[in-house]
Design a protein around this nucleic acid. Sequence first.
DNA 1: ATAATATATGAATACTTGCTCAACTATTCA
DNA 2: TGAATAGTTGAGCAAGTATTCATATATTAT
Lengths: 96, 96
Amino acid sequence: MKLTELKAIQLAGLFSALSGASRVRIISLLIEGEMSVSVLAEGLKMTESAVSHQLRGLRQMRLVRARKDGRQVFYMLDDDHVIKLYSMGLDHVEHG
Amino acid sequence: MKLTELKAIQLAGLFSALSGASRVRIISLLIEGEMSVSVLAEGLKMTESAVSHQLRGLRQMRLVRARKDGRQVFYMLDDDHVIKLYSMGLDHVEHG
DNA sequence: ATAATATATGAATACTTGCTCAACTATTCA
DNA sequence: TGAATAGTTGAGCAAGTATTCATATATTAT
């Protein structure tokens, strides 16, 4: 399984996107369904700015995507790839 | 899918262990089979010290484990959980 | 015992990240 | 139109990370 340096960087980038507790918690909330930034912020007890910054990292790695409705932006998981990564990771920490 | 803060931190820790290109490349080499630190270092073109530091992070998250034989230490993937996480991640970056 | 080899570890330093704060854009409401 | 609301963005700073270098430990060979 040889890996080019580029792929290694991309793959590390993907895992980096999941490498913070705030982002992991964002994912865990979005598993329940799409959610606006302010609702996320409230649920996470973080400022909207902080959440927005984190969402950018998740967006860049295509783990989440956004839907704008009026002045609200609803975020959702990009695909079920994400849920699989998340739950496989959770499985590892829980009964690894 | 509510997540305690502790679990969020543990899960983020797991993904952090995979969040660097060096560590991802270590995993990609270990998929082929166990390998000593110096062989890893040679394959990665990194110093043994740097590799050893990285291996510690991977060990702490139980992604790899070590087997000592004489003065060499052979590292291997801890279980096939790891391969699944890795290949699911690779799948996401390749045709995500 | 001494020397050589394989790895691990601690300190130092450069780089990266995560948050806050202030400023900005876009949308709705009056 | 102006004010309020929802979100984004950039600067700045504190905290964390990755590598290097020097040193330490464990094992083997002489």
